[in-house]
Every structure is written in structure tokens, then in C-alpha cells.
Computed example of a mutant assay.
Amino acid sequence: MDEFQQSSDRSLCFVEDPIQFWIENKFRWPHVSRIALEIYGIPPSEADNE
């Protein structure tokens, strides 16, 4: 996670498809990629929270 946060890669600012980005970078940041793909895999819901 530290390596990801300290990355100075400016291309990270212009990601149009985050899912494809994490698939392509799963070997560069394996742990963060797995977490990101799990989060993006959660379907949106219109149900109200109570």
C-alpha cells in the first residue's frame, strides 16, 4: 500500500476505466488491486438505509 501511495506516476490521474486499470496493474500492486476489484464488484443499490 505504501508503494502505491508514494507512486509519482502522473497517468494515475487520467484513468477512464478503473476496473480495467486494476486488472492491468494487478501484478504491480497485487493487494490493492484485489481490494479495489472487490469494491468495484459491489452492485449499486437504490434501497434506502434505515
Score class of each variant (00 low, 15 high):
30 P>T: 00
11 S>Y: 05
23 I>T: 04
27 F>G: 08
40 Y>E: 02
21 F>H: 03
22 W>S: 09
39 I>Q: 14
17 D>V: 02
30 P>K: 06
21 F>G: 01
41 G>Q: 08
30 P>C: 00
22 W>I: 15
24 E>R: 03
15 V>P: 01
28 R>T: 05
28 R>Q: 04
32 V>D: 04
38 E>K: 09
24 E>V: 00
30 P>F: 07
36 A>Y: 10
29 W>C: 08
31 H>G: 07
35 I>Y: 14
39 I>T: 12
37 L>G: 04
28 R>K: 12
42 I>P: 05
11 S>H: 00
35 I>N: 15
32 V>C: 10
32 V>Y: 12
20 Q>K: 13
34 R>I: 00
16 E>P: 02
28 R>F: 10
12 L>R: 12
32 V>N: 11
26 K>Q: 07
13 C>W: 15
24 E>S: 02
37 L>D: 05
18 P>Q: 12
32 V>A: 13
28 R>S: 06
16 E>R: 08
11 S>W: 03
29 W>G: 09
25 N>I: 06
31 H>V: 06
40 Y>Q: 07
29 W>K: 10
21 F>D: 01
33 S>N: 04
11 S>D: 04
22 W>K: 03
13 C>A: 14
13 C>F: 15
40 Y>L: 12
34 R>G: 02
18 P>G: 10
30 P>I: 00
18 P>A: 01
22 W>H: 04
29 W>A: 07
36 A>N: 11
16 E>A: 15
39 I>H: 11
12 L>D: 13
18 P>N: 11
27 F>M: 10
11 S>Q: 00
35 I>Q: 15
38 E>T: 00
12 L>P: 07
39 I>D: 12
28 R>G: 01
42 I>F: 13
11 S>G: 00
12 L>M: 15
13 C>R: 12
22 W>A: 14
28 R>N: 08
35 I>A: 15
35 I>W: 09
14 F>M: 09
10 R>T: 08
35 I>V: 04
38 E>I: 00
28 R>L: 07
23 I>V: 15
17 D>S: 06
24 E>P: 01
35 I>E: 15
10 R>C: 11
29 W>Q: 11
10 R>K: 03
27 F>P: 13
31 H>E: 08
28 R>V: 10
25 N>C: 05
36 A>P: 10
20 Q>R: 00
35 I>T: 09
25 N>H: 13
21 F>N: 02
33 S>K: 01
19 I>L: 03
11 S>M: 11
42 I>T: 09
14 F>D: 10
26 K>M: 06
10 R>V: 12
15 V>R: 01
41 G>I: 02
10 R>H: 05
41 G>R: 02
16 E>F: 13
36 A>I: 01
33 S>E: 11
16 E>H: 12
17 D>K: 05
34 R>S: 09
40 Y>G: 07
12 L>V: 11
17 D>H: 07
27 F>R: 05
12 L>S: 14
37 L>V: 08
11 S>C: 06
41 G>D: 01
20 Q>Y: 04
26 K>C: 10
10 R>N: 08
15 V>H: 01
13 C>E: 10
20 Q>T: 08
16 E>G: 14
32 V>M: 14
24 E>M: 00
38 E>G: 03
31 H>N: 04
10 R>I: 13
40 Y>S: 05
26 K>L: 03
18 P>D: 12
16 E>I: 15
